[in-house]
Design a protein around this nucleic acid. Sequence first.
DNA 1: CTATGTGAAGAACTTCACAGCT
DNA 2: AGCTGTGAAGTTCTTCACATAG
Lengths: 214, 214
Amino acid sequence: MRRAKIPRTTASRLPIYLRTLSDLANKEVEIISSYDLAELVGGNPARLRKDLSYLGELGTRGVGYNISHLIYRINKSLGLTKRWSVAIVGMGRVGTALVHYPGFKISSFEIAALFDRNPRKVGKELGGLTIHHINDLTKEFSKVGGIDIGIITTPPSAAQEVADKLIEAGVKALMNFAPARIDVPSHVLKRQTDVLLDLQILSFYLAAKAKKAS
Amino acid sequence: MRRAKIPRTTASRLPIYLRTLSDLANKEVEIISSYDLAELVGGNPARLRKDLSYLGELGTRGVGYNISHLIYRINKSLGLTKRWSVAIVGMGRVGTALVHYPGFKISSFEIAALFDRNPRKVGKELGGLTIHHINDLTKEFSKVGGIDIGIITTPPSAAQEVADKLIEAGVKALMNFAPARIDVPSHVLKRQTDVLLDLQILSFYLAAKAKKAS
DNA sequence: CTATGTGAAGAACTTCACAGCT
DNA sequence: AGCTGTGAAGTTCTTCACATAG
């Protein structure tokens, strides 16, 4: 009865499907075919159907997919029916931008604690939360009943140290915005985000295209 | 004489190699083996060698790779020997954070123009640049001699409109930070960045692990 | 007749394992 | 002897094409 496990490539596309489907739901669309949805998300309809088939038989032959049902099932597969607690460390411009990111409000992710090393920032309020000192990480974590995900928005030089502290305090996953590689034990999940790396990939394709044209 | 074209997966790893190699160069390391470098970037040494082999025969058998030579060649393959002009549209928290991101200073990307729609922001200075009104996009572009890459940091509702304007003004690539899908003609490159999508992917693996443990 | 679900074919990527240089 | 470069094997992902269901 249990389905084969979801491939990594599929998992990374599910959030994109989810966003597009939510947009459609807001426009009161109820049903969509794999062809139309593939067009919207950019991809091949067969791949889309196969992706969705990993979650179960969600469509109706001859008709298409019921959007709200699809949203429900993707949410479930992504583990978004649970609420995840998030802590942000580093209240510079990036950390502050994250706190004010409106997307969080309607998401499954709840920003539950903020930290910084700078004594001038500690004690200040931001988005309804008080900024605490990094050294109080463990203490504050237990106050809010544990943190699932740590987001690192410190300067690169502090990233590894902060990662170690977050892991010691019990986070299960890290999202690193600092432009520095961090090492984590294998039981901790990690994702790295960096504008510069993304721009460099763009540059690669830009340069390739320029060369082909010449 | 010409090498086979570089696979997409390789292209997306080259920036990571580049960062690690630069760190090593700063520590005065001169030579590294595929084994040691693979360990640092996280990956299989054979894959690393194959990746690098697409750029040419860069190593010395029995010895390893010369780091500064490798940096030079990766830079070249990524098109980073050229300078790319970047415009940022949307001077909210994310746009502002980008302007102050120190990584740009030593990169091949030069922020050449800033735009916003809000009349209260237009005319202000930010990181040595004046913020212009979106309607002056084309005018300002020609002043700075053209823009290669447009970065969108507006609210989602404005993203498509801004994308259209940027493309009309001649950008060849877009990087979209707004949590909205944008449509671009096939001759324009596009990359999407969104914390929420990344967190949802993390959530998927977190949930999968939790299920396995139970 | 329409659109899904999916084996099977095909393409892309990874890893192995060893020949080939230094 | 040591480490790269790379065919070949192995794995994963994508796309095709059609049986199947409504």
